[in-house]
Design a protein around this nucleic acid. Structure first.
Lengths: 504, 504
DNA sequence: TGAAACACGTGATAC
DNA sequence: TGTATCACGTGTTTC
């Protein structure tokens, strides 16, 4: 049971329009990645009775944790196997029964309240009865991540529980409840590939490309990609531009004709992935590589409903600079949006889903937190001073400085360091002693200074001989003795090298 | 010297186009406000040699602090009086000398580095030599607030130092450096009224209205309100809408309209007020009336420099719907931006001034605050339980002592944990003590075990209280005391969670 | 039908 | 020179 397979192609007699190699593709996909992906699901597009497009289970592969710690495997849950088999048998029936999301949600919720059973396996198994609408009443973020990925044609990569929790998307919330930490949705021509795991995995452009090449050639059921409601511009043609985009992406490699915006329905994005990958080189979140943004594959154009206006390209455009510009702007927007999501994830009680409300809610929330901290600190201080009788008084000093982190913003004026996004006032001392060096770092105890310093030392490939870190009153003091590689002996150089690496 | 008056109308023979009552108006303005405004300046429009519009000193009134704390008054700075008089005498000469902003900035900077002298008085006095371009190379925010207020026709009200610091506007920065906290720029027909003080004053619509009625009737030099480049929509009429707006605002007393605050820059909006006021009713910043947004009076857009693009209006436009749309979008943007400012105001150490950085900094700051609160709460709880005298003794005692005596606590052979795995020569022990836990990891000194462990703890969001790692004979021994988030208390669970995360 | 909220492409600008 | 950010006007999609 280590490798669950819920596949209509492998063991079921149900006939679906997906080619028989889907299962192998997913399997291959999972096994070719060295990251600890737990499962992969292919959601394919279908039409419901009303003619609305939706995503339903196409195929899936469950790999489990790489370490296969015994407690997380399914043999501990015989009921799981039973339910799994049962579900598989009557999947079609169940689907019609619990197509309604609310019902399904209640099931999930009940399961998650169960404490021990809410792991990725449950999530995976329960997924096979789920469906997700597409393009319908999507209130901008309220719909499923899967649907969003499909309609927008952009891959979505969420790799923190906070962010996951934020999305007011049912699936993301459920994933969060079941311990999923990284959730990826990659659109294909006729569906979406979803992968998930319970650890954090940073964005991986290669994976998306691999999915593209694996699933991009499924040119079956192209009609699915067409919009349910007729597009007035091209309904005389039977092939939607989206389809053309797909085809072009597969066999044409091309691109050309950027310039005009689009809104790119989806699909087409892929051809840009192939042809214009270099654009992706600038994708990196330049400054702090928080890796918090979405790896949008997107862009392109050309297959857009075009009000019969100006035909032909604008005169005199070099064609690459403006394209980069729009692409860059797109990325900027996407990045900004993901920052917004991240903010939503940490701010509770967001009154309304719109950005302005979020921002002011964040402000008031921060003020709330500050007030609470001040309150607690004064309380604590009172307690401690009451209890510790005669103290050296530097504790209160430290406390007061940490409380007033706000005030630091004005002058800033901290030597070197500063500028780090997270913590302020980082002090680094380096003392070189022959082939060894002693590094002393003093900072606030925020953003895991220990991990940051150790990460910095790892990046610099310094072997650690000894280290000791202590945190008192929110001040973290770290002393490390490292062995230096030869050639690097300047104390100031070491210091700045460490300093610059401390910011993530 | 309590009331500095730098007025060409009161004591100078220079003839300017401002009416002789300017000084009294400013004076009246300051004294009629009960808020502690320190100074008021009227900047009037002029053309430089190149025919470009710019703002220069029209008149000013310095009132000083209401509390008139002796240390902040000018008699402490005889040099100030001297320089003031000197400046006043040779104002025109100085203007031509230090018209260059860079020079002036350096002067201001030098002054501000002076510690004691950089108060509002200095700022006020130095202002009289300043000029500010209008409508030229306006990078939207990089130009002066004054220019922005004038061209946009919107009043700008900044009432926090953070926000002030943010603007990449020279004047705002200078004001910040000189201790100004609230800075207001109110456009008039032929200039801008600027008021400032070193305390925070919330937006006051009445003040803006008062300025409008005081300075709105200066219908002299109307041509100044006209853009240097002709406005194609109305250049057959000689009266700009702005002026009409002013007149209407003056003699109409307006009021009525409590409903629609702000927004609408005089002119067009005002005539909208007359005809279709109800539209403004929905302007209210519905939910929280933080009053955090900009009191833009504006709209208009039609006295904006309009690059000679499309001549003639778009065909078939109803003229109100699309216009309202752009206006609404403008307002939305403005609102959003002010929310951003507010967020900047409460988030310390904003690494860079751009929105994306602000957002992620806000997120990490919130997490910081949360962590700190949790920490404080647990600390407080600990304190209080400790204070309840000798309780059950064992467990609580251990908790209190762990921080300092980490290494002694577990000389291996602890009952729980241990045992299993340890295949790849990495052993993990976990001992939970209340809200804290001790983690001991023994492994080979390869692949930077310190960084791996710290990274794992960061992923799990465990705050490190104390850590010590030593390497002997290529064996790395690490002991860490961490604070656990609530809900995670199982030693075995912790152990496996750490173990799985140790492999990268 | 219009108000509100977004995303998009575009031009400007700063480092 | 490219590579950022930003604001603007516009089209679209909600309710």
């Amino acid at each position: 049971m280590d490798h669950l397979m819920i596949s209509p192609t492998s063991s079921s007699s149900l006939v679906l329009e997906t080619p028989p190699t889907l299962q192998q593709k997913l399997q291959f996909l999972l096994q070719s990645q060295q990251d600890g992906w737990v499962y992969a699901i292919f959601w394919h597009t279908s039409y419901d009775d009303n003619g609305n497009l939706f995503l339903s289970w196409g195929d899936g592969h469950f790999q489990g944790n790489k370490d296969t710690s015994p407690s997380t495997n399914s043999h501990n849950y015989p009921i799981l196997t039973q339910l799994y088999n049962e579900r598989r048998k009557v999947r079609k029936g169940i689907q019609s029964l619990i197509n309604d999301n609310d019902n399904d949600n209640s099931i999930m919720d009940h399961m998650s309240s169960n404490g021990d059973l809410n792991d990725a396996e449950w999530f995976y198994v329960m997924s096979l009865a789920r469906t997700f609408p597409i393009g319908d009443h999507h209130h901008r973020g309220s719909y499923s991540l899967l649907g969003k990925a499909f309609t927008s044609g952009t891959s979505i990569w969420v790799n923190s529980k906070h962010e996951l929790q934020f999305y007011n998307c049912e699936r993301a919330k459920e994933a969060f409840m079941h311990g999923i930490e990284t959730l990826v949705c990659i659109p294909t021509s006729n569906g979406v590939v979803e992968m998930g795991t319970d650890v954090a995995i940073t964005e991986n452009w290669g994976l998306i490309q691999q999915v593209n090449s694996l699933f991009g050639s499924d040119l079956i059921a192209l009609s699915h990609t067409k919009q349910p409601n007729p597009i007035q511009f091209f309904d005389d043609h039977n092939i939607s531009f989206a389809d053309i985009g797909i085809i072009a992406g597969v066999q044409e490699e091309d691109n050309s004709t950027p310039t005009h915006h689009d809104k790119r329905k989806r699909s087409e994005t892929r051809d840009n992935d192939i042809s214009g990958v270099k654009l992706g080189s600038s994708y990196v979140d330049s400054e702090h590589s928080d890796s918090d943004f979405p790896l949008v594959t997107a862009s392109n154009a050309m297959l857009e409903k075009r009000p019969p206006k100006k035909r032909g390209r604008k005169p005199g455009l070099g064609r690459e600079t403006p394209l980069n510009h729009v692409e860059a702007e797109r990325q900027r927007r996407e990045k900004l949006n993901h920052r917004f999501y991240a903010l939503r994830a940490v701010v509770p009680n967001v009154s309304r889903m719109d950005k302005a409300s979020l921002l002011s809610d964040a402000v008031s929330y921060i003020n709330e937190l500050k007030a609470k901290i001040e309150d607690l600190e004064s309380k604590l201080e009172k307690e401690s001073t009451k209890k510790v009788k005669v103290e050296t008084a530097d504790t209160t000093d430290n406390q007061s400085t940490t409380t007033s982190t706000v005030e630091q913003t004005g002058p800033s004026a901290n030597g070197s360091s500063t500028s780090s996004s997270s913590s302020s006032s980082v002090e680094v001392e380096v003392k070189v002693m022959g082939a060894d060096a002693m590094v002393r770092v003093q900072s606030e105890n925020t953003n895991h200074p220990g991990a940051r310093l150790m990460g910095a030392l790892r990046e610099l490939e310094f072997q650690v001989h000894h280290a000791s870190m202590s945190c008192v009153n929110d001040i973290m003091l770290q002393d490390v003795v490292v062995k230096l590689p030869q050639g690097l002996r300047s104390e100031e150089g070491l210091r700045s090298a460490i300093l610059t690496r401390l910011e993530h």
